[in-house]
């Protein structure tokens, strides 16, 4: 194993460019250390990030809340700014892992780890968050919904990292919110499925709705087809048979040691129904 501890962002990119072969960016280390212990990561190079304070913190800029990729979950949960602006987002993350893991785990790590169960991603999806990607010569923004390409596959280019998460400051305003994480227990749990939702009702009609799920696909996804189907309907107009047929096009639950595909599917349906007050 080779290690690099760049002194600055610039040095980070210079170092990264020089490394051939597979490499890992180590942020909080809550997942990579487990992978090392289990022999999944063996000889690959490791670049330490966590000391780069420029990627930490939560701040307001124009009409966005910017969360540094290296912001810890504890930092997010305790942030006064988020308490004011994005309380739903903040509250939902209380269920992330455990208070001990929250101290070290980072939001960037949760996203870049690429797990289908990543807790923060369904929330970011419904909040229309964007990721700010940094590379040596370029900064670019991509919607989180376009970040994942497949299981542990990202839009990230070689030597590009997630620098920050941008959430519109009024992303929650005017919406009814919904978040459920279903695990084998109430803390220290990996989601069997998770669902986040925002909806706005006007004149009994669903004027706007945003739904996103985790652990039901190769990566967390928005349910655009279901949303499309639901928009501009009153609750009574919803044909749940049709809703399910749209949902089936968008989720691909599996059976594993943790749960069963039939269960995951049905609970997803039930939770959507409950969110729609049906």
């Amino acid at each position: 194993m080779k290690f690099y501890k760049p002194k600055s962002l610039l040095e980070l990119f210079e170092t990264s460019e020089k490394i051939e072969g597979k490499k890992y960016f180590l942020a909080g280390g809550t997942d990579i250390n487990v992978q090392i212990k289990n022999g999944i990561i063996k000889d690959e190079s490791i670049i330490f990030l966590n000391h780069l304070t420029e990627l930490k913190g939560v701040l307001q800029s124009d009409n966005h809340i910017i969360i540094g990729a290296l912001a810890s979950f504890r930092g997010i949960i305790e942030s006064k700014l988020l308490k004011n602006k994005l309380p739903f987002f903040q509250n939902s993350l209380q269920e992330f892992a455990s208070p001990l893991i929250q101290t070290t785990a980072t939001i960037g790590g949760n996203i870049a780890n690429g797990s289908p169960t990543a807790d923060v991603v369904p929330l970011l999806l419904v909040l229309n968050a964007k990721l700010k990607l940094f590379s040596k010569s370029k900064l670019r923004e991509v919607p989180i919904s376009e970040f994942y390409l497949g299981y542990k596959k990202f839009i990230l280019k070689r030597n590009e990292i997630i620098g920050a998460v941008l959430i519109p400051e009024n992303a929650e305003t005017g919406y009814e919110t919904f978040y459920k994480k279903i695990g084998s227990r109430k803390a220290l749990t990996i989601a069997k499925l998770a669902i986040a939702g925002l909806k706005r009702i006007s004149n009994n009609k669903i004027e706007d709705i945003k739904l996103a799920v985790g652990s039901l696909n190769e990566y967390p996804r928005r349910l655009y087809k279901v949303e499309e189907y639901l928009k501009n309907k009153t609750v009574d107009e919803i044909d749940f048979f049709e809703l399910e047929s749209q949902l089936k096009k968008e989720i691909t639950p599996i059976t594993d040691l943790r749960s069963d595909k039939e269960y995951r599917y049905q609970v997803c349906v039930n939770l959507i129904r409950t969110f729609l007050n049906h």
Partner: peptide, 21 residues
């Protein structure tokens, strides 16, 4: 043990009750 999926490997899989449960 789960039929078809084998036996647990550690405390991540084997869910002991936490203070919340």
């Amino acid at each position: 043990y789960k039929p078809g999926y084998g036996r647990m490997h550690g405390f991540t899989d084997y869910a002991l009750p936490t203070t919340m449960d």
